[in-house]
């Protein structure tokens, strides 16, 4: 586990028409073992944020630290899961999950790599699918495999870029609960990018609203639902009010209010 800290991070893309600012002085801090969600209007630069934190691109300005160390390039202690759960279709489910280990720990015996993958599959209730091909899985199952893959190398930081966005409502809620049980078992600091306010409230300790592009910090709120959460918690007056506030903030960000 390590904390994620962004200090006044700005980023702009260079286009033929000149610089194109995407993020403007974003600051945030996810304490060790905590779960933070980032919500904001479509196209406000949330995905750029994930690429910055994982070291895939460098910010134009500001500093990004993981566990107190400045991020200068890709770091193997980060796990990533995307909305599109790309699978290596020619490999079995287990072999898909071990992929990061083959890069990070190439010397680890294949048996041990696979045992670790099996352990994670159990956590996401996919026992019995170890040897299946990805094409035989449903969208929700693929996303669960994708989560396992992002966790297999025991990353300290997990970055989730709308992983549940393309799933139907029931599957999504099922995966939220799986996400909670994964957090209980694996020691990770999580940052979730999402469009779904209920999802952000159900999963996080803190929700950050970003403004429209260029994205700036607009609003931050703590979620006090404790660590034992059920879907019923989403329907209490207290949560409903919090969701209404977030809803309002998104509308402000979109410039509609």
């Amino acid at each position: 586990m390590s904390e994620i800290e962004l200090q006044e991070v700005s980023h702009e893309f260079l286009t033929p028409d000149g610089p194109f600012p995407v993020l403007e002085k974003i600051s945030l801090k996810v304490p060790e073992g905590a779960f933070t969600s980032v919500v904001g209007p479509s196209g406000c630069g949330k995905s750029t944020l994930t690429r910055l934190i994982s070291g895939l691109i460098k910010p134009t300005q500001g500093s990004i630290k993981l566990g107190g160390r400045e991020v200068t390039g890709p770091i193997p202690t980060v796990g990533m899961a995307f909305q599109n759960p790309v699978m290596l279709e020619w490999r079995s489910v287990v072999k898909n999950i071990t992929l990061p280990l083959e890069i990070v720990a190439p010397k680890m015996p294949a048996k041990e790599q696979e045992d670790r993958a099996r352990e994670l599959l159990k956590l996401v209730s996919l026992e019995g699918y170890e040897e299946n091909r990805p094409s035989e899985l449903s969208g929700g199952m693929r996303q669960r495999v994708s989560l396992c893959r992002s966790l297999v190398h025991r990353p300290e930081v997990l970055i989730l870029d709308e992983p549940f966005g393309a799933l139907d409502a029931f599957t999504r809620e099922e995966l939220w609960q799986i996400m909670h049980s994964l957090r209980d078992e694996e020691q990770i600091t999580c940052l979730l990018i999402t469009h779904d306010l209920r999802e952000s409230v159900f999963l996080s300790d803190e929700v950050i609203v970003l403004s429209d592009r260029p994205a700036r910090n607009q609003y931050t709120t703590k979620i006090d639902l404790g660590s034992e959460r059920t879907l019923d918690d989403l329907y209490t007056p207290q949560t409903t009010e919090q969701l209404a506030v977030l809803r309002h903030q998104i509308e402000v960000a979109q410039g509609r209010k």
Binding site: L56, P74, I75, V78, F82, L99, I103, V104, R149, H153
Partner: peptide, 25 residues
């Protein structure tokens, strides 16, 4: 798909590894 590349690159894989493990198959 860029996700393929990102998954491996974020782990520090070289271009050759990405080609060998993903692009080629």
């Amino acid at each position: 798909e860029p996700e393929y590349r990102d998954i491996l690159r974020s782990l520090g894989a070289t271009r050759l590894t990405i080609f060998w493990k993903i692009a080629l198959p």
